[in-house]
Design a binder for these strands. Structure first.
Ligand SMILES: NC(=O)c1ccc[n+]([C@@H]2O[C@H](COP(=O)([O-])OP(=O)(O)OC[C@H]3O[C@@H](n4cnc5c(N)ncnc54)[C@H](O)[C@@H]3O)[C@@H](O)[C@H]2O)c1
Ligand SMILES: NC(=O)c1ccc[n+]([C@@H]2O[C@H](COP(=O)([O-])OP(=O)(O)OC[C@H]3O[C@@H](n4cnc5c(N)ncnc54)[C@H](O)[C@@H]3O)[C@@H](O)[C@H]2O)c1
Lengths: 275, 275
DNA sequence: GCAACTTTGTGCCTGCGTTCACAAGCGGCT
DNA sequence: AGCCGCTTGTGAACGCAGGCACAAAGTTGC
């Protein structure tokens, strides 16, 4: 594991991890003892010193930066970039500091350098082959979408169970039967699986993907998938998004109601306070 | 009057989340009866005190509970429900406690009651009319999707600029021209707008939605939208999701490398350091 | 070469969200 | 009726993320 270091040499001095993260109290859990990890082990295991929230933002910065690069912009300050990305500039600088120090004080960041570094951290220097399972409404849209290949995520395999779809090319790629998933996934070195099947089939499809060796899954079906620890799942749940928006609508209506007598809805209050 | 300005000046557009989070609600439980406070104020405050993360989970619980209700399940414990929803049971109980105390100690929660209460909090007792702008690949999928109406989010309007699409029904609804957006949105009382146009058109479409009175937006285009404070935006960014997965792939490969000590290994590395 | 200015990188504080652990409450069993 | 075991609801601790503010570090101008 020798410390391999890239061109960027310097290495950020660790960040978080307070040394004295020991448990203060003396009373360990009564029931489940579990295992407590200790700093050293934890340190290595958690090579992910980068908070996931920061990773998500890095992806956004990357997009903004790519756009700037195309426009011929060479350097940009944290203030400007933060503005374009819709975040606080201090947060942006902190996010960037997780990946190293690539800025020049008094000047800003070199767009190209930042693009390169973020891509490196996000693992975009490799291509990540993607497969889509369930070529219905959504699956078709995904297969036809041109935005993925351009960003290093070529869709290389499509699966379904519908006999009418098997063999038919969608977005240039012929649909394979789900039963061939293991073989095809191995052949095309698929590393990310996208689930766009009806909810009922999602868990089974997920299991098959995992069995085929896929360790990263993006799930569009509105179900909670059960997977082994080593598999990473992200979900896109439109119904949940809608409901969150609905919650805000309700909140807003609630506040408005307060001043003006609302129509009939009376149930809004009563949220209550019981204790 | 839209009050929407673009990048030109620094609008700042406050942080995306938590608009006026200055509240330092002090007494959550308030079991001390002595300090009497006005129910109204507290009610409202209480309501808005639900963390957004909890709202998102409530939506998930709701789905699980709805499924259980259909299966004829009457009661369920926090442990079971937490399991089904993929969260920690303590967290689940705390989430539920935000909306009131509807459980029975020693027994659990009555499914129907919980469903009703969560729906109330999420504002699902009203229908929220949805419009989709940009009827391309994704827009078609969304328009054809049957899952929204069933959950209280009927899609009632579709917009595009492509003359070939105008008037053509998709999923039973004829596509209107974007220029008619204000009128149509008002007529059909649209409260949620979905943006599925190419990135370049997204900000403009967003501005039009806002001008038309839509205060909740779900954005699929990979751009950071600028909106007035009172508008709630949620985004679904597939590229970002992919990149987060990619990050995990890279990290994993990194860890593997560590033990194996691969010779050539590519560039992925040096992600972190810490000491 | 020095001073004034700009912008980064980060220590520190604050606040939120998560998790633990347990008293309180409820039903059932004896 | 009273006890026992189960499950809720929540106070409290903890850890992480966000944001401020400033020293460090670099640039530009004189
Ligand atoms: N269409 C949307 O806009 C939309 C929006 C939000 C969520 N979703 C979710 O995405 C998923 C797909 O939606 P859709 O509208 O494309 O559905 P769809 O019914 O149009 O397509 C589903 C496809 O999956 C295939 N399929 C079924 N079982 C399968 C299996 N075991 N293995 C492989 N393929 C299988 C079907 O043959 C079909 O082609 C659903 O879970 C839906 O809830 C869709
Ligand atoms: N298709 C996917 O699976 C997918 C996946 C991720 C993200 N996205 C994003 O979703 C958006 C839509 O993707 P798509 O594949 O459906 O694109 P698309 O090109 O198929 O469709 C875009 C539609 O928007 C319409 N349009 C263009 N300008 C408009 C305007 N000013 N007002 C109204 N309508 C306008 C076009 O006429 C077209 O019908 C894009 O931003 C894309 O990046 C799509």
């Amino acid at each position: 594991m020798a410390a391999q270091r890239d061109e960027g040499d310097e290495v950020v001095t660790g960040t978080p991890t307070a040394p004295g993260a020991d448990r203060a109290d003396g009373a360990p859990g009564a029931d489940t003892a579990e295992h407590v990890e200790e700093p050293t082990a934890l340190t290595r295991e958690r090579a992910r010193a980068i908070p996931e929230a920061a990773v998500a933002r890095l992806a956004v910065y990357l997009r903004v930066l790519s756009g700037l690069a195309e426009q011929g912009v060479n350097t940009i300050s944290s203030e400007e970039l933060a503005n374009a990305a819709g975040v606080n500039s201090a947060k942006l600088r902190k996010d960037l500091s997780y990946i190293g120090s690539y800025g020049t004080r008094g000047v800003g960041y070199e767009v190209e350098v930042l693009v390169g570094q973020i891509e490196r951290i996000l693992g975009l220097t490799r291509k990540h082959s993607v497969c889509v399972v369930g070529i219905g409404n959504l699956g078709h849209a995904l297969a036809n979408y041109g935005g993925f290949p351009g960003r290093g995520f070529p869709v290389t395999a499509l699966f379904d169970v519908d006999p009418d779809l098997i063999g038919v090319p969608v977005g240039g790629i012929p649909v394979d039967h789900i039963d061939d998933i293991s073989r095809v996934v191995a052949e095309r070195e698929v590393s990310i699986g996208v689930i766009a099947t009806p909810p009922k089939a999602a868990q089974e499809v997920c299991d098959r993907l995992v069995a085929a060796g896929v360790q990263c899954i993006l799930n569009f079906a509105p179900v909670v998938l059960q997977v082994p620890d080593y598999v990473e799942v992200r979900k896109v749940d439109l119904a949940v998004e809608m409901q969150i928006l609905s919650f805000h609508v309700a909140r807003r209506a609630d506040e408005a109601t307060e001043s003006g007598g609302g129509p009939d809805l009376s149930d809004v209050d009563g949220v209550v306070i019981r204790r």
